[in-house]
Design a protein around this nucleic acid. Structure first.
Length: 594
RNA sequence: GGGGCGGUAGUUCAAUUGGUUAGAGCACCGGCCUGUCACGCCGGAAGUUGCGGGUUCGAGUCCCGUCCGCCCCGCCA
């Protein structure tokens, strides 16, 4: 590029520059060779400007323009000109002007792209991931990553203004048995020992609070070795934040400020603070989910009490076993015919593990149609009718199961059917806090375990209950939910080691186990820990929602497939015996086919 | 770990009940073309039908196994 530097980017080629000489660099987006005049769309950071090669301006340059191919990297020097009226392209941002090229330099040639570099393509995802470079040249990814950048800047501005310090914490940390599966990194200096990549900087940031940093944040990479989904990657980014001498209200205020400003700065999305608050109990009762999209208008109704003495064995046995009976009433549901109901039943049984899908339909004449209602007493019928406000045209789906499963199944039906039937409020954004979570819940074996993570502080007046009725203790935990997606969560943390020890004890850890796993934290708490709290905010999901996308892979530059592979790098890969022996690792002999 | 959908040319797709030489659009290559903007016209090349095995006179098609991509459950905050 000797001697010539670009003077403008494509998006800067505006009518005000007409008559000026400019130097542009970029990629050949498309070439239209008319034998005489040659048009080239020059692309540069997602913006396109037309450059024109005319034989009469420079025969030599024109001749070489004939060699150009898609994705060649070029530099052109030329004059910005107004297009004639009849050749203005209203579909292009720069469509009023073009550049008459005087000089062309081919900076690099390029192999043909595997798919067109356009906004709308049909390439399948594996092809896109294998050719990620080309995919990243496309408008949607250029825009998503630009949004992502703008959001980083907004968050940093907001937090800096609020006197938060950005501090990095280690990637090479300590494995702990809680939560997700760790990614392990073998130690060369200590054979047989492993670092763990952080699932989040949770404990490190608490140590920073104890060290007196008062307000910390980090846009942190986190690693969790679990199966992936459209909205879950092995590595992902969190806005991680912690503050000392604070309370829930202050933390939620910061959370609102970041969310509102970030959404506005990066995507022009207007959210209004303060956010609505919903208790965990209400969320579960009405929506069957702790991350409801409340734009969906359907709500669940609990009818457990109606079946405590029921003759209907399927429901009664479930209630006797501590389960619940809950239902999803849908009024004016004529369009859901018998076929649709059968498909739903198949779906919930097969995909969601439901035992069945009982239902009642109210005919136009007020009579009931249902596979189960013949087992109901008159008082049970009356109770259901009252609780669900049945009327002609109503359809009610039932689940009798454990509370988590009944809620899970009905909540999925609620969202699916709500959308399908258009029972959705007409507003693009739904943001809320879910608060008043319990600190503990029983696990599959009936033992108490933490609901979120083991460092959440109990609500202060519930501390005495830790000894008597731990399952009734409320946590200081809160979630932010945006459009039915859990974006972030936080809490106040235990700053008293006695409370923290008690919580470990309730979770069934012996003193020795607590010391071995978290001795460093307990000691730190004893060294003068201030009251503190904060949150962690799922950055990739936030970008995804603001960009209107439904896969994290579309907001991460180099994402992994569902099986955890990077198709561009071809990672992971085996490593050689020298590397392994240096780490003191011996692999089992390769399993041979029988 | 489980359920579902998919894998044919660089790419997106087609190929009758198992039947001749596996086709088409776009991309690519060559030629023509001075106002296009998904330029146009003419011509051409392009295939381990994901991989391995089986059934069959004959397999893209049927069977078994396996790998890969996506969605979901489990798992995960």
């Amino acid at each position: 590029m000797q001697g010539l530097r670009r003077t403008h980017s494509a998006r800067e080629i505006v009518p005000e520059l007409i008559g000026r000489e400019v130097v542009l660099t970029g990629w050949v987006h498309r070439r239209r060779d008319h034998g005489g005049v040659i048009f080239v769309d020059l692309r540069d950071r997602g913006e396109i400007v037309q450059v024109v090669f005319k034989p009469e301006l420079s025969p030599e340059t024109h001749a070489r323009a004939g060699d150009l191919r898609s994705e060649y990297v070029i530099l052109v020097r030329g004059e910005v000109r107004r297009r004639s009226e009849d050749t203005i392209n209203p579909k292009m941002a720069t469509g009023e002007v073009e550049v008459d090229v005087l000089e062309l330099r081919i900076l690099n040639r390029a192999t043909p792209p595997p798919f067109p570099i356009e906004d709308e393509i049909e390439a399948d995802e594996a092809t896109r991931l294998r050719h990620r470079i080309h995919d990243l040249r496309r408008g949607p990814l250029q825009r998503a990553l630009t949004l992502r950048h703008n959001l980083y800047q907004s968050v940093r501005r907001t937090l800096t203004r609020n006197e938060f310090l950005e501090i990095e914490t280690p990637f090479l940390g300590k494995s702990t048995p809680e939560g997700a599966r760790d990614f392990l990194v073998p130690s060369r200096l200590h054979h047989g020992e492993f670092y763990a990549l952080p699932q989040s900087p949770q404990v490190m940031k608490q140590l920073l609070m104890i060290a007196g940093f008062d307000r910390y944040f980090q846009i942190a990479r986190c690693f969790r070795d679990e199966d992936q989904r459209a909205d879950r990657q092995l590595e992902f980014t969190q806005i991680d934040l912690e503050m000392s001498f604070t309370d829930v209200e202050e933390v939620l205020g910061i959370l609102e400020e970041i969310t509102v400003r970030g959404s506005a700065d990066a995507a022009g999305v207007e959210l209004t603070a303060p956010f609505r608050r919903l208790s965990y109990a209400d969320a579960m009762a009405r929506y069957g989910s702790d991350k409801p999209d409340t734009r969906v208008l359907l709500e669940l109704v609990d009818v457990t009490d109606a079946f405590r003495e029921s003759e209907f064995r399927a429901f009664r046995a479930n209630v006797d076993a501590g389960g619940i009976v809950k239902c999803l009433p849908i009024h004016d549901a004529a369009e859901l015919g018998r076929g649709a109901i059968d498909r739903l039943e198949k779906f919930v049984k097969k995909e969601l593990g439901a035992k069945g899908l009982a239902w009642i339909r109210v005919n136009d004449d007020g009579s009931w149609q249902s596979p189960i209602v013949k087992f109901f007493s008159e008082s049970e019928k009356a109770a259901i009718a009252a609780a669900t406000e049945l009327r002609p045209g109503s359809l009610v789906f039932f689940q009798a199961d454990t509370a988590p499963r009944a809620n899970g199944i009905l909540s999925r039906l609620r969202e699916d059917l709500g959308r399908q039937l258009g029972r959705v409020e007409d507003r693009p954004w739904d943001v809320l806090f879910v608060v008043d979570f319990p600190l503990f819940e029983p696990d599959d074996e009936g033992r108490l375990t933490y609901v979120h993570q083991p460092f959440v502080a109990p609500v202060e007046e519930d501390i005495p209950l830790l000894d008597s009725e731990p399952e009734r203790v409320r946590g200081t935990h809160y979630d932010v939910v945006l459009n039915g997606v859990e974006l972030g969560s936080g809490s106040l943390r235990n700053h008293r080691s006695d409370v923290q020890r008690k919580i470990f004890e309730i979770m069934g850890y012996s003193k020795e186990e607590s010391e071995a796993r978290f001795g460093f934290l307990l000691n730190a708490l004893d060294s003068g820990a201030p009251p503190h709290g904060g949150f962690a905010f799922g950055y990739d999901r936030w970008v995804m929602l603001l960009a209107g996308l439904d896969s994290l892979r579309d907001v991460i530059a180099f994402p992994k497939t569902q099986r955890g592979q990077d198709l561009l790098l071809d990672a992971p890969t085996p490593v050689g015996p020298e590397q392994l022996s240096e780490l003191g690792i011996t692999l089992p002999p390769a399993e041979t086919e029988p």
